[in-house]
Computed example of a mutant assay.
Amino acid sequence: MSDQGSSWDRVPIDAQSINAPLSRAAVFLVVTVNDTPAALAKACDALSSVGDLLKDVGFRDLTAHLSCVVGIGSDLWKRLGIAKRPAELKPFAAIQGAKHNAPATAGDVLFHIRADRADLVFEFERVLLDKLGDAVQVEDEVSGFRYFDARDLLGFVDGTANPDGSDLPAATQVGSEDPAFCGGSYVVVQKYLHDLTAWGQVPVEQQEKIIGRTKLDNVELDDDAWAQKTHKTLATIVDEKGVEHDILRDNMPFGRPGQQEFGTYFIGYSRRLWVTEKMLQRLFIGEPVGKYDRLLDFSTAKTGCTFFVPTRAMLGNLPQLATALAKKA
Rank of each mutant, 00 (worst) to 15 (best):
D130W: 03
Q137M: 06
V30G: 03
R146A: 13
E205P: 00
M1T: 08
G144E: 10
V202H: 08
G58T: 04
V138Q: 09
D140C: 02
A43I: 04
D75C: 01
R85F: 07
Y269G: 01
L110K: 03
T303R: 05
A87E: 12
V109P: 07
C68G: 12
L283K: 10
A171S: 15
A104W: 00
D45L: 09
T105I: 00
D195Q: 03
F307M: 01
H194A: 10
F266W: 08
L234R: 01
D3H: 07
V275P: 08
A322R: 08
S23E: 10
I82C: 02
R146L: 14
M314D: 14
A170G: 12
V238Y: 01
D152I: 00
I113S: 15
S17Q: 11
L22T: 15
I113T: 04
A41G: 11
D246E: 12
P319H: 01
V157R: 15
V157N: 11
H100K: 09
L248T: 08
K191Y: 01
R10C: 03
T36L: 07
A38Y: 02
T264I: 10
D140T: 14
P21G: 13
S185Q: 05
R312C: 13
G304M: 08
L110W: 04
A198P: 01
D217N: 13
D250S: 15
A64T: 04
F156L: 06
L29F: 07
E244A: 12
D223Q: 06
F122E: 15
G268N: 11
F92R: 02
L128P: 07
L53I: 04
Q260V: 05
F262A: 14
P319L: 04
L321W: 06
W274M: 09
H231D: 14
L196P: 02
E177T: 10
Y292T: 10
Q206M: 09
G304H: 05
D14P: 10
Q281A: 11
F59C: 02
T230F: 01
G144D: 11
G175S: 02
A329Y: 03
A25G: 07
Y292C: 05
S49K: 14
D119E: 15
A150Y: 10
D75A: 11
A235H: 10
T32P: 04
I95T: 00
A93R: 10
V50H: 08
A180Q: 12
A118T: 13
K278R: 14
A93K: 13
G316K: 00
D9F: 03
C305I: 01
A322Y: 04
P253W: 06
P91G: 02
A170C: 05
T214V: 00
E139G: 02
A20P: 13
D35R: 13
D224A: 12
L22M: 11
Q207E: 14
K291V: 08
E277D: 15
V136R: 02
C182S: 13
E240K: 15
